[in-house]
Amino acid sequence: MSQHRQSATHKQSSSPANVIEVCEVSKRFGTVTALDGVSFAVRRGLVTGMVGPNGAGKSTVLRVILGLHRPDTGRALVDGRPYRDLSRPLTRVGSLLDASALHPARSARSHLRWLAHSQGIRATQADRLLERVGLASAARRRCGGFSLGMRQRLGLAAALLADPAAVLLDEPFNGLDPEGIVWMRELLAGLAAEGRAVLVSSHLIGELQQVAQHLIVLGTGRVLADAPVAELLTAQGPERADLEGVYFRLTQNAVRYQSSNAWRQA
């Protein structure tokens, strides 16, 4: 990850360790309580993993942080301020929620250029990022023809475009080939090493095991665990250093959508 050494550790000085703070956030959608008093913080220099079964509220909490959803109670702060009050938000938080959210007729380069303009940063940054995520050769192609992996790469480029202090990624491993998964892990580690706060959600604990230093486990809208990975593993016992076991123990009573036993045995 030598290519982004230039910005390494540049944001650590004199700012608090917590870039993102979620305080007692609750959110209901009709009769479904998506989030129920969720609190946690995302620290600089670490990759924080967020796991939980389908419907645990992982995407909702990311959307609350980004000001896309208004919480019913509680608040989410970025650098001590609500996201909606940020003037050039992408310089603070870069995010990738839905990689396929692209205009099919717009080129990858134009997509990044309008984002760059919206943050008042130089449009040449777009080409630099395309290079970095390995899409330089596809820069002028319509996004409509991109594979899911290419869309993930473009989404990542958009997230990193304005050199943010924090990065939020929702299921970034989806659609990546094995080589891409390795690349993604290295990239995340590199971002954390540069002093950024990295929050990665996933429903696959195995993917996070190798990259996250801190883990937040969500289940039916509640935080079930919020601890360093090492600590969680210690609690499990020295003989079984397996996060998956921790995960299942934590979420066994907090699964919203569960297949029937008959199906599982079949």
Binding site: L66, L86, S87, L90, S95, S118
Partner: peptide, 9 residues
């Protein structure tokens, strides 16, 4: 979503 994340105002 991207647009509103980039321009929350």
């Amino acid at each position: 979503v991207t647009t509103v994340a980039a321009v929350p105002q």
